[in-house]
């Protein structure tokens, strides 16, 4: 049997293996070449031995290929990379969570925006009563399916990173080791700083200013446009926002060294989140007190209208979502305060 035919058999097998290999592996041309070279070399060596004459034969090539296992089983082994965790691997889970939060946040913002547009334009004919929940559910399903598929294909977060990013991470790890900063035993990466002090202080100050504006409402005549009950709610909100900003400033000043201080401020934030809920429930039950302040250019006056009654249900849905987010953020802060314990451990 000619060597050409034997070559053809080996090539055909390697082609099948290549087809079955995961995409992240095929993207790395050098790695792919090395893998196929190694398999090719193995088949020829095995066939040479099996033939018993020091030269491979077509039969020995066929047997050697059969010994290799199916292209599927070889590819499956390459895909077995991550640590299984409820269908999505442990390694991909943080990325999955990040995408889920980002997409759901965008959906909520878009829905709130479209709702406001609907009220202002009046003729906006897009019902969002159920849309927001359907969209969130749809996003959840699509993102979950994508990440389950990626997990099954053996993708790891580094497959989505450039070489530059991977090198940067390596450098960060080296720096963390040098400085004795805490490193996650789970991911092997340095823990992220709890807060970015400058960011927290600046953000906190802006929040305080915004809170003071709500508290004092320094716009002449505006109080006449707002329902007295809602005016009181706005002032209470102002106090909450000032306190929230104050907590952020304190967190910025405490920095990343005073772990217990950060934990206490997070608990304070939980208390604040709980305090928001009664206010939101009042708003939920009284959409008629919410003013929509507009400006009439022709008569040069500011005026206030109420949310039309047909939009009350949609409005309630949005407030319900905000209450849910507030509760989730309170729970998250409790969880975060707990996770800060790991920062106390010296590694």
């Amino acid at each position: 049997m000619s060597e050409k035919n034997m070559e053809k058999l080996v090539k055909e097998f390697l082609k099948q293996v290549k087809e079955k290999l995961p995409e992240w592996l095929k993207d790395n041309k050098k790695e792919l070449r090395d893998i196929l070279d190694e398999l090719r070399e193995h088949i020829w060596a095995k066939a040479e031995e099996l033939s018993g004459i020091g030269q491979p034969t077509e039969d020995s090539i066929r047997i050697a290929i059969a010994h290799m296992g199916t292209p599927q089983s070889i590819a499956k082994e390459y895909k077995r990379r991550g640590t299984p965790k409820i269908y999505i691997t442990e390694e991909l889970f943080p990325l999955y969570r990040k995408w889920l939060i980002a997409v759901i946040t965008i959906i909520i913002i878009l829905n709130i925006f479209s709702f406001i547009m609907e009220i202002i334009l009046g003729d906006w004919n897009w019902s969002i009563d159920l849309d927001i929940f359907i969209n969130i559910l749809l996003a959840f399903v699509i993102i979950t399916v994508i990440f389950v598929a990626l997990s099954m294909e053996g993708y790891l977060p580094e497959d989505f990173k450039s070489k530059k990013e991977i090198q940067k991470e390596k450098r960060e790890l080296e720096i963390a080791k040098e400085r004795g900063l805490p490193i996650s035993p789970k991911t092997g990466k340095p823990f992220k700083p709890i807060v970015k002090p400058a960011e927290k202080i600046v953000g906190g100050v802006i929040t305080i200013v915004f809170g003071i504006i709500l508290l004092t409402l320094p716009f002449p005549g505006i109080e006449d446009l707002i329902n007295p009950a809602f005016l009181l709610i706005i002032r209470v909100m102002g106090v909450y926002i000032v306190v929230d900003g104050g907590i952020d400033v304190i967190r910025g000043i405490l920095g990343n060294q005073v772990i217990i201080g950060q934990q206490i401020t997070l608990v304070l934030k939980v208390g604040l989140a709980i305090a928001w809920i009664p206010l939101l429930i009042i708003i939920l039950n009284s959409p008629e007190i919410i003013p929509i302040i507009s400006y009439n250019g022709n008569s040069n006056i500011w005026y206030s209208i109420q949310i039309p009654i047909e939009y009350h249900e949609a409005f309630r849905n949005i407030i319900a979502v905000i209450i849910a987010i507030t509760v989730i953020s309170a729970i998250y802060n409790v969880y975060k305060a707990g996770t800060l314990e790991k920062y106390k451990t010296k590694y």
Binding site: L39, G69, S73, E77, Y78, R81
Partner: peptide, 12 residues
């Protein structure tokens, strides 16, 4: 072991 599956193990 299926011979072809040795190489993914070695890579890991």
């Amino acid at each position: 072991i299926e011979e072809g599956t040795l190489y993914p193990i070695l890579r890991k």
